[in-house]
């Protein structure tokens, strides 16, 4: 390709030094994150190279079964990642189930909406559209769900006395938890607000740049990017609401009691 600068493995190794620097910072300042940093970097490398292979295969076979399998695997990992780094996790199946459920519901709704109305590829499940689209929506939705659930559980623990004070006065669980619910949803939605405000000025979207470099007219490329960001905003909103309200449902009971005994003890 004309003007294409190929990266050598030596170049990657040089850039990897930056991750090692992060790990060094973690060690020096006792952040306890060096293992996480290095593991996630190794995972990222393996996952991206595998994804390259998987995508090439999916795009050539265009099979509904293989596309569905890829999507199920992506959703499973998104659910796991959304709950993996929670400070306090819901006990039992709820821990993994709520995060995965919320991510799946939101990302699938938004992706199917886009595929059946705006994009309409033929066939509609064409992996060239379905998989990258889901991937872009899923990442942000996962972050929203994760932030929402994390603020909910830590908010209810920290503000337990305030929540129970309202319950004692005869408020129902929705009204007693309302301040914590609002804060959790705000925290979940803040990154997408930042993302939309900064896009095009601070952050230059990779997909759009790629399209322009590939010869797509700038306005067409911008339309795609706008579409994607709207879809992401929808996915984050739906996912966060599902996760936070599901979490409130689980952390209270039918007699409108706060049930923090359904949170796993904080691991340190």
């Amino acid at each position: 390709m004309e003007g294409y600068i190929s990266l050598g493995y030596g170049d990657l190794g040089l850039a990897a030094l930056l991750v090692l620097t992060d790990a060094g910072i973690s060690l020096a300042l006792q952040l306890g994150m060096h293992r996480q940093l290095l593991l996630s970097a190794v995972r990222m490398v393996v996952q991206l190279f595998l994804m390259g292979l998987v995508l090439t295969t999916l795009f050539t076979v265009v099979s509904p079964a293989w596309t569905a399998l890829a999507i199920v695997v992506m959703l499973g990992f998104a659910g796991r990642e959304a709950t993996a780094r929670q400070e306090r996790r819901l006990t039992g199946w709820w821990g993994l189930g709520l995060g995965t459920g919320a991510v799946t519901l939101a990302a699938m709704l938004v992706t199917v909406l886009a595929l059946t109305t705006a994009l309409r590829p033929d066939p509609w499940y064409d992996p060239r559209y379905a998989v990258p689209l889901l991937g872009m929506i899923l990442g942000n939705t996962m972050t929203g769900v994760s932030l929402g659930l994390n603020s909910l559980s830590s908010g209810l623990v920290q503000r337990r006395a305030a929540v129970e004070a309202r319950l004692m006065l005869g408020h129902d669980r929705r009204s007693a938890c309302a301040p914590v619910i609002r804060q959790s949803l705000r925290n979940a939605l803040l990154p997408i607000v930042n993302l939309m405000s900064a896009t095009g000025v601070v952050s230059i979207p990779g997909m759009m740049t790629g399209q322009i470099l590939g010869g797509v007219p700038p306005v067409e490329a911008a339309k795609y990017q706008v579409m994607i960001l709207f879809l992401i905003a929808g996915g984050v909103g739906i996912g966060a609401v599902a996760a936070v309200f599901g979490g409130v449902y689980r952390l209270t009971d039918r007699r409108h009691r706060l049930r923090l005994d359904r949170l796993a003890v904080l691991k340190d």
Binding site: R159, R160, A161, A162, V163, E164, A165, R166, L167, M168, L169, G170, H171, D172, P179, R254, R255, H256, R257
Partner: peptide, 18 residues
């Protein structure tokens, strides 16, 4: 639960404020 707690009020040793 809320109906019951409007009949049976409770003042804890460390009241909460929202």
């Amino acid at each position: 639960g809320p109906e019951w707690r409007r009949l049976v009020g409770y003042l804890p040793a460390e009241p909460g404020w929202w």
